[in-house]
Computed example of a mutant assay.
Amino acid sequence: MKSVLVVDDKPEIRRRVAEALIKYGFTDILEAENGQQAIDMAQAHKPLLILMDYVMPVMDGITAAEKISKKCPTPIVLLTTRADHETIEKARLAGISNYVVEPFREDQLFPAVDLAIHHFIEVTSLRQEVAKLKDTLESRKIIEKAKGALIQQGMSEQDAYRKIQRMAMNKRKTLKEVAEAILLTLE
């Protein structure tokens, strides 16, 4: 099910955006009329995409987008009458993937939605890869430190690494977990 959250304080804009998104293939259209409702609905329903107006009562779209991006990352397209550098920069820093200047045409909405979704997927993938590489690097540092501690006790580098490997296999632990245990016992 392809769900989308449309956020605007004007019902006619929400309806117009919803109609366009149905043509785009979205099957579940959720609606909110202010930024706080958008945050609540994004957390409750986890939509595939959010289209949100900038100027709204209770909380503006950029502030809401920033809060949504921190709690439940989702591609967000901002609907705005403003296209100045300051607004675009605030939107970018808030985690907004794309924007459409109002009044918009339906044919402007589709590329913005498509780019926002694909950009979000790419960025999410890169963030996961970076996190994995950081973890690998951190593990490698701990293993090297433990290996160094074993070398100081008279083992060769090769024997120290084999010992860590054997202990990991025997205890069904990761190399990092064994290395951490070795470092704790040698403190």
Results as ranks from 00 to 15, higher is better:
144 E>N: 14
88 I>F: 04
142 I>V: 15
181 A>W: 12
79 L>Y: 09
155 M>I: 05
124 T>F: 08
32 A>Q: 15
121 I>Q: 00
117 I>C: 06
158 Q>L: 13
37 Q>R: 13
152 Q>V: 12
164 I>L: 15
61 G>N: 10
64 A>V: 14
113 V>H: 06
161 Y>T: 04
64 A>K: 13
38 A>K: 02
120 F>W: 03
121 I>W: 06
177 E>K: 15
178 V>Q: 11
177 E>W: 11
153 Q>V: 12
28 D>W: 09
43 Q>G: 05
183 L>E: 14
154 G>W: 13
101 V>W: 07
45 H>Y: 04
113 V>R: 04
38 A>T: 06
9 D>I: 09
40 D>Y: 12
112 A>S: 07
156 S>C: 06
80 T>W: 10
58 V>Q: 06
18 A>M: 08
108 Q>H: 13
174 T>N: 07
74 T>M: 14
67 K>L: 14
44 A>R: 15
63 T>I: 13
24 Y>K: 14
165 Q>G: 02
185 T>N: 07
124 T>M: 09
45 H>Q: 07
14 R>Y: 02
107 D>R: 06
164 I>M: 12
46 K>S: 03
105 R>Y: 12
130 V>D: 03
169 M>L: 11
8 D>A: 13
147 K>V: 12
124 T>V: 08
88 I>Y: 00
121 I>F: 01
42 A>W: 13
116 A>F: 00
174 T>D: 07
56 M>I: 05
95 G>M: 05
60 D>F: 00
101 V>E: 09
7 V>K: 10
136 T>K: 11
167 M>S: 10
107 D>T: 08
141 K>I: 05
168 A>E: 03
81 T>Q: 10
61 G>T: 09
136 T>G: 06
52 M>A: 14
61 G>A: 04
86 E>T: 10
39 I>N: 06
123 V>H: 12
62 I>F: 02
180 E>S: 11
7 V>S: 04
184 L>N: 12
115 L>Y: 10
153 Q>F: 08
137 L>G: 02
11 P>C: 03
74 T>D: 14
20 A>P: 01
39 I>S: 08
5 L>Y: 07
31 E>D: 01
46 K>I: 02
86 E>H: 08
179 A>W: 15
58 V>A: 08
117 I>H: 06
83 A>S: 14
50 I>F: 05
137 L>S: 01
53 D>W: 01
96 I>H: 03
57 P>E: 07
26 F>V: 11
160 A>K: 08
171 K>P: 00
9 D>S: 05
78 L>A: 05
49 L>Y: 08
109 L>G: 00
143 I>H: 00
71 K>Q: 09
129 E>V: 00
158 Q>A: 12
80 T>Y: 09
4 V>H: 09
147 K>S: 14
47 P>T: 10
164 I>W: 10
169 M>W: 04
34 N>T: 01
121 I>R: 04
101 V>Y: 01
64 A>H: 06
44 A>E: 08
173 K>Q: 15
159 D>P: 07
21 L>D: 11
145 K>N: 09
54 Y>N: 11
4 V>N: 09
98 N>E: 10
10 K>L: 12
109 L>R: 02
